[in-house]
Design a protein around this nucleic acid. Structure first.
Length: 570
DNA sequence: GCCGTTTTCGGCCCGACTGTTTTCAGTCG
């Protein structure tokens, strides 16, 4: 039982208890425990197995939660959760994903209208049954329908960061089988799209029996949905579905190219083949009946006179023309990154101290970090006013002086307020090493107002970068309305950098906007926004997004040393 | 639910906004 799975059970239970109207502090205890467990650097199962130790040695875990954790580790399930699931249908929990619907409203819809899933919710909203409920109105009804429309687009898609570890675990175990020669993921996961609909895995093997049996029995697999000689479809415990394809060695490259996509990219490639009197399918490249390529992807691309194209670029967004002109970028790698310039500590809503974050960053071979806690507007996080910020900076200086091997910079994540002023005065911002300006609130304002806010920040001489520029949360919230290219032009004019926030639910800027920023020669900074020492782990997903944008090492400012980086600051 | 303790139960980060209401509950971060 993984920490993430234990954490998930507590989060699920908290959702259900919330709809059930449980005490808010009890919920907090469950959610704290869930976060604590998922951030825990060692497996909870190890603590349970150790007779000298118990989960309640962790602050935030008491006798009751410790008992539940032991139950989960030993039996794989939590009786209280199952009881609650009997009481409240899963579809009611789904309603919480819609913006504007929280636990109280979901409970009213469930109890008063007997709505148990999103389909029934849609029908009720369309029939106008909702606006007459107490506490609801016309606007709520409309926003429910809008939220449902958006939720349906992203249904079944999960964050790359959730899908990839599962795919990797399966690939790793299948790769160890004696009969398996080659193995790779394909599809949107291989292209590192920010969300993934299902998993595709390709193998070459002498015989499909062993890998298919092994997959059927893999601990992550819940059910085999279909099985033939060359293709098996399974459902994972997480709900994701996966196709395993067994192909002959002479077709591996062709199949990998075919199943990696994207569809649009492949259409252009196949058209090139036609122009050359060739035919490409998942088995190979053919001239008439004769196979002329297919063993490797390089061979397939070479057959249409192209160099191999990195999967992240295969979206028919100009990569084929670039390949033809030998102008493909050398994409940035995780190991190119030298510093991380966005993170939080216990001063606001982080879980680790300055020193702990610095040590964790150093262990990841980073040479510099900026501590960028929240400004005072973010009250829930205990955001810093000028006095507390200056005291915090003193503390950072102290830790920096006492630490070797990594430079710790004094930063701030300063809110751009709804009235287009900054949350801290200029004389304070002027003292910082690094100022990130961000929108957190009022994201629904009209575009003109959003622009005014962003332009105010961009024009402020102390602002170095705009953090998570759109404020989107993938699959949940679309981000503020803006003309991003206009904002980027202003940033380019004023020497303001742009962030790719690496958090899997943000990845903001997205791939296309980051590519646009590159075209304007805006230095891009890939940041983790870490709120815990484990928060640095998401850096990889920021790199994937940057690769999809075609970014090279030189396009990303935090691949430089801090001394070099400083020269980019205005 | 947890914690700390004045060892038995009270306190636990909360301010702004929205849409509802006509003084505020629910949602958000």
């Amino acid at each position: 039982m993984q920490n993430s799975e234990i954490s998930r059970l507590f989060d699920d239970l908290a959702d259900l208890l919330e709809i059930d109207g449980a005490n808010a502090f009890r919920l907090r205890a469950y959610r704290n425990a869930a976060r604590l467990i998922s951030d825990l650097p060692e497996p909870m199962a190890d603590i349970v197995a150790d007779s000298e130790r118990s989960p309640d040695e962790l602050s935030g875990i008491g006798k009751d939660l410790a008992k539940k954790i032991v139950t989960i580790v030993e039996t794989g399930s939590l009786p209280q959760l199952e009881e609650m699931q009997e009481k409240i249908p899963a579809g009611v929990v789904d309603m919480l994903r819609l913006p504007g619907l929280g636990p109280k409203k979901a409970a009213v819809l469930f109890h008063d209208l007997s709505i148990t899933n999103l389909d029934e919710l849609k029908a009720a909203a369309e029939q106008g049954q909702i606006h007459s409920l107490k506490g609801f109105g016309k606007k709520t009804e409309t926003s429910i329908l809008e939220g449902l429309a958006r939720a349906q687009e992203s249904i079944g898609r999960v964050f790359l960061a959730d899908a990839k570890p599962q795919a990797d675990a399966i690939v790793d175990s299948l790769a160890k089988l004696p009969s398996v020669k080659q193995i790779s993921t394909a599809g949107s996961l291989r292209r590192r799209r920010e969300t993934v609909g299902d998993l595709d895995v390709l193998i070459t093997a002498d015989d499909s029996t062993e890998p298919m049996n092994a997959l059927a029995e893999h601990e992550l697999i819940e059910q085999v949905l279909a099985r033939g000689d060359t293709k098996q479809r399974v459902r994972l415990r997480s709900g994701l579905e996966m196709d395993l394809r067994v192909v002959p060695e002479e077709s591996y490259g062709a199949a990998l190219q075919y199943f990696t996509g994207s569809k649009d990219h492949n259409i252009v490639i196949r058209r090139r083949a036609q122009d050359r009197g060739l035919k490409i399918n998942e088995y190979g490249v053919y001239r008439g009946d004769e196979s002329i390529a297919g063993r490797t992807e390089e061979d397939v691309y070479a057959a249409v006179d192209l160099p191999w194209i990195p999967p992240e670029l295969r979206e028919d967004r100009g990569e084929i023309e670039r390949a033809e002109n030998n102008a493909l970028p050398t994409l940035i790698e995780l190991s190119d990154i030298r510093g991380d310039l966005h993170m939080h500590t216990t001063a606001t809503d982080g879980t680790a101290t300055i020193a702990e974050m610095a040590a964790a960053a150093k262990a990841r071979k980073l040479k510099y970090i900026a501590i960028t806690d929240h400004s005072k507007r973010v009250t829930m996080a205990g955001g810093l006013d000028a006095d507390r910020l200056r005291a915090h900076w003193k503390e950072i200086e102290k830790v920096n002086a006492a630490t070797s091997g990594i430079e710790i910079l004094r930063g701030i994540e300063c809110d751009i307020l709804e009235d287009a002023t900054l949350d801290l005065p200029d004389d304070v911002l002027a003292e910082a090493d690094w100022v990130i300006a961000v929108l957190h609130y009022g994201l629904k304002q009209p575009q003109a107002q959003i622009h005014e806010r962003l332009l105010t920040a961009i024009k402020n001489p102390h602002v170095n970068i705009i953090g998570h520029p759109t404020g989107r949360l993938i699959g949940k919230r679309p981000g503020a309305e803006m003309n991003i290219s206009e904002i980027l032009k202003a940033a380019a004019d004023h020497g303001v950098m742009m962030e790719i926030n690496a958090h899997p639910s943000r990845l903001d800027l997205n791939d296309t906007s980051a590519a646009a920023a590159k075209d304007l020669k805006i230095p891009i900074v890939i940041s983790t926004d870490a709120h815990a020492v484990t928060g640095f782990d998401v850096l990889q997903y920021g790199i994937y997004q940057a690769r999809r944008a075609g970014l090279e090492k030189k396009d990303v400012a935090n691949t430089r040393t801090w001394a070099q980086f400083k020269k980019l600051l205005r």
